[in-house]
Nucleic acid binder design. Structure first.
Lengths: 150, 150
DNA sequence: TCCATTATGTTGACTAGGAAACTACCAGCG
DNA sequence: CGCTGGTAGTTTCCTAGTCAACATAATGGA
């Protein structure tokens, strides 16, 4: 049978395996707080920006505007964000966190801290920093900048 | 405003960002060959095993049996796998690659090689090996073993 | 000024997967 | 035998995305 290189020879294989595990665990944690990972990313982006256009969020999160539209609907439904008309452009509007939404962000951020500690805390400090640095290098070299959501 | 730790302080953030980029690029590559990443994983698993029960594939790929059932339907539709009754247990059956499916695996494997080289080849050999080693360590310590699919 | 082009956001059709109900079957025990 | 409980796969319903068509509004050139 023709050779098919061993999957486990690929760094991408292990990258994905670890990444999926970290993510799925984080998803479980934030689900206990009643939000999804996409919702968390959305709220985290608004936390710094105060008010953003859906299109800006789509850009930042690497999602389509359709997805953002639906995601915003869900967060509106949960009372975590509000929508404000954009005076001067009747097509546009901006989204901001409500008080409830804003106060939820630090709680979720703490879960992110905890998740990171759980997964990477098992490495010695030096190795942990090395991993972090290598990943940042790869992201830099590829010009990656969208907040990872899925 | 209460502190919400900088997202970019999380190793998990960069891990996901890089992992998503690597994966999405790979997805694009295999799409040119007419298959999805899940289909590739499925076929790659069968390539070594020759014939497997859907339940075994579900276990190996970390997917539900429902998802495997549908995935198998799609691959059957594309003529890449075949289904064989399991003599001795009328509930069960096994799945195997067809000739067409089997000959596609090395092509897809080459794409995986290429993708890995594209992403990690920019690192010096030593760093690349370090990254690989660190990821394997993390996977080991967590007891991860399912083939990453998404 | 008016019309063509472009931009913003929403919607509908579609896809892929998970959860759980369901079907069909097996196995062991009375 | 014939239940009863468990097992293998399938199906249904749901969620959360994409993509493309759409409605509406802004813009800019003839």
């Amino acid at each position: 049978m023709p050779p098919a290189s061993d999957l486990t020879a690929h760094t991408g294989y292990w990258l994905r395996m670890v990444s999926n595990a970290v993510s799925q665990d984080f998803a479980r944690k934030v689900a206990d707080e009643g939000v999804t990972v996409a919702e968390w990313s959305f709220m985290r982006a608004l936390y710094d920006a105060d008010a953003m256009a859906p299109s800006a969020l789509a850009e930042k999160m690497g999602m389509t505007k359709g997805a953002i539209s639906k995601l915003a609907d869900r967060l509106l439904g949960k009372g975590l964000i509000t929508r404000a008309d954009n005076p001067g452009d009747k097509r546009a509007h901006t989204l901001s966190l409500t008080g409830a939404g804003r106060s939820k962000v630090p709680i979720l951020a703490a879960l992110a801290d905890k998740n990171d500690a759980e997964y990477f805390g098992i490495l010695p400090t030096e190795e942990r920093e090395m991993l972090h640095r290598l990943l940042r290098t790869l992201a830099d070299r590829r010009g990656l900048k969208t907040i990872p959501v899925d």
